[in-house]
Design a protein around this nucleic acid. Structure first.
Lengths: 239, 239
DNA sequence: GCGAAAGCTGACGATTGTTTGACGATGTGG
DNA sequence: CCACATCGTCAAACAATCGTCAGCTTTCGC
């Protein structure tokens, strides 16, 4: 089943930036979080951290407050001013005043040392749940000729103007687009768009392709976006 | 006509639901959080809490784990299944295992007793910052065709003149506007506008959409602002 | 060319989802 | 206690979408 391949938006590991000046802690936490399924980058100072944030994709920041040079809280505020990245302060100072100050500086959570890596991981995960509309297939967008498809928004535009597709038509189109120009067999289409193993009239597919073409093609009688592959199935034209 | 004014009360206090079976704690925390600027509702059991959530507007839930009857973690999972309300577990159990379990049950934060009210307040505020995709705290303003909506003031104007929406209509409209043109499923609307686990007649939604259109659309029979997405839900037209 | 297989097409009920007006319950203010 | 606003429910009307069919056209091997 070829379909599965493309759907494989492989679960990317979450990347954590650990800012701590103590090498042993960087080492220990790094290993522990790695075990928990995170990729850990480490920085020993605020400056270094800011540089790394510019160059790397980071999902969460772990910030120690006692840093050499710039104060941890200042780093926190700077980070927060630049992005809305989740920040967890990891600090040895454990009294309420410090915690309040840290949270008020823009941190999302504050954990005190000594800390349990499992707990930290759980807190990171809890925070990530809140991140963005964690839409499954985020940010996908297809362009096919003068047609633009945004699966997340359920929107299709032709030459810039929004056109309306029915649910079936929409799924059919996305299914074809997902194959990126390769042929999708009739069977596969029936299976994916209609579900399980469809048994009814197989003309069903033709009919819907036609309805789709009517809306999507500039000249429905001379399709150049959704193409028939005789004896096999359908495909979309290659970009 | 309190409803009108109430529709979009400016600077509404954040409402906290405190679930704890110990009356003294309810009393003490209630007072302390009140000082911090929160409105506190209290429930002594999970069942009571669920009822209150149906009837009241709550922004955050504080949940004690040791409840009579149903286990706190179960309450937590139930809440989470029904809504994405911020949940902070407040518990006497302080070991990592418990904390991990709590966070994994869907809680956003876990604080241990004895606790400092100031810290708790700071954690609540930190959590609220993360709330919802982009609930810009203040100064939100939507424009939809010739309709202007100012959530903070609870005011809706059409072609410059103020029109009156009932509370439900107002929330419905804001909910749709917040999605910025994306489709909002019927489910999501029922959940966000009506409450956590609305079970009644689902025609309810249609009826209110209609009433909303009557007031908002220039030609209610040909809606061009609040659009139906058959089989899915509703959306507002894109600006 | 011919005929069969594969695909295309327009039309037509059936189904499902939405709209609509009306009604009764509830709550608030006069 | 009445008048009014708002809400939730219902049933009938309406509309979009779907699946099916029967006839037509294209393609391709012979």
């Amino acid at each position: 089943m070829i379909e599965t391949v493309d759907a494989g938006v492989a679960a990317e590991r979450t990347s954590v930036l650990l800012i701590d000046d103590d090498a042993r802690i960087r080492q220990a936490l790094g290993l522990a979080l790695d075990d928990e399924g995170f990729t850990v980058e480490a920085a020993a100072s605020g400056e270094q951290a800011l540089t790394m944030l510019r160059d790397n994709d980071v999902d969460v920041v772990l910030l120690d407050l006692t840093l050499p040079g710039v104060d941890g809280l200042v780093v926190c505020r700077t980070l927060r001013a630049r992005s809305d990245l989740p920040i967890i302060i990891v600090s040895a100072r454990s009294d309420s005043g410090d915690i309040i100050e840290g949270l008020e500086a823009g941190a999302d959570d504050y954990v005190t040392k000594p800390l349990d890596a499992g707990e930290l991981a759980a807190r990171i995960r809890a925070l990530l749940r809140r991140r963005r509309p964690a839409v499954g297939e985020a940010g996908r967008r297809f362009v096919l000729g003068d047609v633009e498809v945004v699966p997340d928004e359920g929107v299709v535009r032709k030459a810039g103007v929004e056109i309306h597709l029915t649910r079936t038509e929409f799924r059919l189109l996305v299914e074809l687009l997902s194959a990126g120009g390769r042929v999708v067999t009739r069977e596969a289409l029936l299976q994916h768009v209609w579900g399980y193993d469809y048994l009814g009239d197989t003309r069903l597919l033709d009919v819907h392709v036609r309805r789709l073409r009517r809306k999507v093609e500039t000249d429905p009688d001379e399709p150049c976006l959704v193409l028939t592959v005789r004896g096999a199935g359908y495909k979309v034209a290659r970009g």
